[in-house]
Design a protein around this nucleic acid. Sequence first.
DNA 1: CATGAATGAGGGTTCATTCAT
DNA 2: GATGAATGAACCCTCATTCAT
Lengths: 188, 188, 188, 188
Amino acid sequence: MRNKRNSAKDIIIDTASRLFYKQGYHSTGITQIIAEADTVKATFYQHFPSKDALGEAYLRKRHAEWLGDLEAYLARYEKPAEKLLGIFEFLAQWLVQEEFRGCAFLNITSEFPDAAHPIRGQVKAHKHTMQGYVQGLVAQMTLPEGKNKEVIARSIYLLAEGAIVESQVHGDAWPVATAKEAVKMLLS
Amino acid sequence: MRNKRNSAKDIIIDTASRLFYKQGYHSTGITQIIAEADTVKATFYQHFPSKDALGEAYLRKRHAEWLGDLEAYLARYEKPAEKLLGIFEFLAQWLVQEEFRGCAFLNITSEFPDAAHPIRGQVKAHKHTMQGYVQGLVAQMTLPEGKNKEVIARSIYLLAEGAIVESQVHGDAWPVATAKEAVKMLLS
Amino acid sequence: MRNKRNSAKDIIIDTASRLFYKQGYHSTGITQIIAEADTVKATFYQHFPSKDALGEAYLRKRHAEWLGDLEAYLARYEKPAEKLLGIFEFLAQWLVQEEFRGCAFLNITSEFPDAAHPIRGQVKAHKHTMQGYVQGLVAQMTLPEGKNKEVIARSIYLLAEGAIVESQVHGDAWPVATAKEAVKMLLS
Amino acid sequence: MRNKRNSAKDIIIDTASRLFYKQGYHSTGITQIIAEADTVKATFYQHFPSKDALGEAYLRKRHAEWLGDLEAYLARYEKPAEKLLGIFEFLAQWLVQEEFRGCAFLNITSEFPDAAHPIRGQVKAHKHTMQGYVQGLVAQMTLPEGKNKEVIARSIYLLAEGAIVESQVHGDAWPVATAKEAVKMLLS
DNA sequence: CATGAATGAGGGTTCATTCAT
DNA sequence: GATGAATGAACCCTCATTCAT
């Protein structure tokens, strides 16, 4: 008997999250999701009006978890500069995990060409949050004269994003290490 | 009768290139490709053993074209520093084009989770070439003392990659402009 | 709190009546009915053992209403001959109504091939009543010598039925006008 | 091995015709059709873009057959008056057949509420042809003075239509016999 | 060599109904 | 007695690929 915390809906989201990230959105069928979630199609559609709605739930969950993990990791640091560099340490320990497959949000972006699709809206929102997070840290810092804080913050964000996708592409950690070095240069 | 340059095979590749980039790989069916290429299924399978083989041909073509376009653009510059910044000018004029949908290679990466897949190999090769191109330019430059050329080159590459994906995500050109500014900082 | 006249059951029947007539029986799902009736599935199944049972309730209601409307319309006439022709006037004003979709009973007959089904029984009963109504009017008349009252009455009934279905098919009122003319001929 | 005359497409149409007429359109699934036609779904969709397209093919076939059967039956008569009454003899021998389920065109009309649907267009066309056929016969006759040929022809058509549906409803042949009598009255 | 027909597996979605609470 | 969750079967349709001609 399932309790509230292990309701069919939650199990479906968890299963879908794993499979969407691992296999991609379009390559993952409802059939597989419900099979691995040990339920049936009609039950699935009782909780989600469509596959895309499940996709949105997946991104919501992923956003919350990822941001939570990042902030939990950075809690060990106090100074904004440390936290900024800590982001890349966080990325470094993430991408060596066996299941690493790049950024869930960038991956799904590739599968939704229509920029007006709700899924794309969620991606935009997630990335906007990340960018704001970096910007918030930079804002607390004292930078050398002549440095434009907004450009610096955005550059760090771009380096992080580039590091994630290139780690995925090359199957190697060097992009994150390189990005961290670049950030140091930009901040000094 | 079709000549070599307009052979059925070429038309198929051209059609597939357009559709794969516009709609994504899995969202584009063989049926649509052969329909828009004005041919039939069996003719298709005579030229390509599988859809994936067509995918590889697509990437080969895209690689040659993109690199050719880039080099053609940068021909206006002579100094390596100018060429480096020119890369971002090239990106800027690219992403305002109506059909811009991000990087074809990164997009298809999202659709092929298995890093050992031949398609992923082509992506890796393409990105390796791009990275080498940047590195070659940096190698020709005289950088301020203490600057590590390899790190600089890789950072520029990462900024370019990050700029492309973020332009796609946000539907805005700021990432390219920002990346260009960051490159200037890194080089000075 | 709902009173008897607006009980959940009545609302369900009303909603179903509207949808069954408008969309057809099989094309109308329980889901839509309970949604538009602003109730839930279990409540529905408390009042009706099955969808077919609701279908029967729909026909019962429709029968009562239609007959009531007809008799109310014909109340303006006294002589049986006037009433007979009045039937076609009644049909004429009915089929120009926006929601006209033919005879509810004939429509549902098409969706229930099994003549032994209870729904088909209700259709039969309804039509039997209509036929009897016509027969009753003819019985009160004095017809020219040699006219067989039963054949006349049945013919008028067939003309009415044919007029309804053909108005539906052609989306035009001419069948009713023509039928009325035919009735005049048959009666003279 | 199938020859042209027994191609998969023809078998599908034949099977669907039988099932659509017997069970109704919406109650007959593609799955059942292809199963009884001994083929698979993809083959079906190679020949028909949709179920509705098959529905149209069904009506085309039915129209040709029905009209052909009627004309073949009436070939035994020469005079238009005989042919007119012969129509009802044709109906009489039709509706006693075991598989009689009413008029295929009127039945499917009930299942397609949208009068603008192509299927409805085919129904309209079929009925228009039938009406024209009757009108053509009446046109060749010499009617008693004062009889309006158009009204007579249309009335006969309405009687035929009414007779078909009422035979279906009541499961009895009397409507056709009655209609024939009414036609005699109208023509004399 | 070219081609239309055929294929099995799976796509996402909805059906009327029942069950546990 | 009222309700949200669950169910198995079926819905129409498309996938990449192959085969007979």
